[in-house]
Amino acid sequence: MAEQLATGSRRALRPALPLLLPAYLWLTVAIFLPLSAMVFFSFMTDLPLAGKEWAFTLGNYAAFFSQSLYSKLLFASLRLGLEVTLWCVVIGYPAAYVLAKVLKGRSREAIFLLVILPFWSNGLVRIFSWAMVLREGGILDTTLNAVLPSKINIDLMYSYPAVIIGLVHSYVPYMVLTCYLTLQAIDDSLIEAGRSLGASRLQVLKRVIIPLSMPGLIAGAALIFVPVVGSFMEPRILGGRTGTFYGTVIEDQFVAVFNWPLGAALSFILLAVVLVILGLAAPVLRRAG
């Protein structure tokens, strides 16, 4: 029976191949080609443009290990990624829970829209809006001073918290969506069964709901952690001078210093480190779930 099904699906796959071809072609052109070009660049002394001399070298990779600045920045970026991911869990998971299990009908749709809205707005607009809110004499400062009796100065602009706020705001919808999907798939009768067996709401959350929504948490964390570690826009605009991270250094190599080979090498080191971290973390997290 199972064998029959397997051969059946294999037979069904063959007519589908021409249909899949454009997708594979697109993947090759859009991802594989540029990526292999970058791999190529990362082993060069200079860009092969305008007749410049170039040769193969491992120097770009060696630079990462010879200058402690890069590994320090990478460490800072990893920490940033971890912190932003944690905040996204803290904010996104309860929001997803309320969306999936508490709200019904119209109010659910309305809140859902509010969660998705940042997705649809331009990233730069979003970040500059935060700049208006966080700077001295900005919206947050003015509002707090209007409410509080004594004069205080709030200027979060160009600080580490500002970077965190901006990044969390950009990425929290991923966590809400992935967690919402897994939470919604959990039948309410499981929660009721737990309660009827004598478990408090908190015990049901710990023993049933969180373990069952672990796939959503892991997916959300991966979707957030990876781009945040390489992020440069939020750190640069909201962090100012404190906003130097691994991602901003890579960006500098491409747009300011024009040292593409070094930028490419640094990118691949980041990719390798992130993949190793995800590879190590996934089984641990899954076992926790």
Binding site: S189, L190, L197, G198
Partner: peptide
């Protein structure tokens, strides 16, 4: 609910999919 000391069997069984049979029974 949790203080009423009742036992409930649901139409869709409502077994915890993340636990073994023994852990399901042990839950309460």
């Amino acid at each position: 609910v949790e203080k009423r000391r009742i036992g409930m069997v649901f139409q869709n069984y409502a077994l915890f999919p993340n636990m073994s049979v023994a852990d399901n029974v042990a839950f309460g």
